[in-house]
């Protein structure tokens, strides 16, 4: 696998506030990557840095082996659709698509037009008068029809209703299968999109606290429930991500359990269930972010 994006010890601070803090990560060619984290965790800033929209304070970013900043050759391979991207004042969807058609070498206009219909984006209304969900749909249309080898989508389905979100997941997957490329999408709403992601980065307070293959992650943590005493005995030695007590009952989210551990705990009368990705990430982001968790 070739690495298309490599970030090394990247920091971005604005007048003392650190938005991105010593981030290192690598993204390989052709995959769907998720950049997950709470609002304000640094997702957008990190994406802006990778797309060369923002200049790093310290550290390195390399895209196709070179800095993306002011590098026309590299940038021609990128589409970065920001959640808060403001299109020109008097643009209608037709103008956006026309501009995108001029800008992107691999632009598929027929596909773009079909997506506009599918998302029911009103063609006669000004883009700045569209609803939040429709505006997100405009970003999705441009981002996908661009067929850019590196496609970065910032909160692509924010404000979309359930039907539009389902369309988005289906279209993203189908188009990715037909035209494999590197897709990075950020979101703070994890549950629905989780199955589409091959790899996730979790960012919290500017730091990457989790960098793992989604499937490895799925088996890696468990929710254990039972009497306080037996739970405490059972989970000694594991990393506890979260714990709650009611009366003499205790529930913990523990990391690093192997299948045989789970079986042993179950026969000791404890309830053991694999933690969902959502549970795992929520408990991670509540943790002290100074420590990066390694996933076996």
């Amino acid at each position: 696998m070739t690495k298309v994006i490599e970030v090394n010890n990247l920091t971005k601070s604005y007048r003392g506030a650190t938005a991105v803090d010593s981030v290192s990560l690598a993204i390989e060619e052709n995959g769907i990557y998720g950049l997950l984290g709470r609002n304000g965790a640094g997702k957008t800033t990190l994406m802006k840095l990778v797309a060369g929209h923002e200049l790093a304070s310290t550290g390195e970013i390399s895209v196709y082996g070179a800095s993306p900043v002011e590098n026309s050759a590299v940038l021609a391979n990128m589409a970065f659709i920001r959640e808060s991207l403001r299109y020109s004042e008097n643009y209608k969807i037709g103008h956006v698509l026309k501009a995108a058609k001029i800008a992107f070498a691999n632009w598929d206009d027929a596909f773009a037009q079909s997506l506009v219909d599918k998302f029911q984006i009103p063609r006669k209304r000004l883009v700045r008068k569209l609803s939040r969900g429709q505006l997100s749909a405009v970003g999705v249309v441009v981002g996908l029809a661009a067929r850019a080898p590196i496609t970065i989508l910032d909160e692509p389905y924010i404000g979309m209703d359930a039907v539009a979100r389902k369309h988005f997941y289906d279209i993203l997957l189908a188009d990715y299968i037909k035209h494999p490329r590197t897709i990075v999408l950020s979101t703070h709403l994890i549950d629905e999109v989780a199955d589409l992601l091959e790899h996730v980065f979790v960012i919290d307070q500017g730091r990457i606290i989790l960098d793992a293959n989604t499937e490895d992650l799925r088996g890696s943590a468990a929710v254990i429930e039972g009497s306080t005493e037996s739970v405490d005995d059972a989970v000694a030695g594991f990393v506890i991500l979260e714990s709650q007590t009611i009366g003499t009952q205790k529930r913990v989210v523990a990391q690093g359990l192997k299948a045989e551990d789970a079986a042993r705990l179950q026969s000791a009368g404890l309830a053991v269930k694999p933690a969902t990705l959502q549970q795992l990430i929520i408990s991670q982001t509540n943790m002290d972010s100074s420590e990066k968790v390694e996933v076996a």
């Binding site: 289906d170 997957l173 990715y176 199955d195 499937e215």
Partner: peptide, 17 residues
């Protein structure tokens, strides 16, 4: 693999696995 990924709405790499 692609049919499985599309049907189950999962990443193709997962279906491949």
């Amino acid at each position: 693999i692609n049919e499985l990924a599309t049907f189950h709405r999962i990443n193709p790499a997962t279906a491949l696995k």
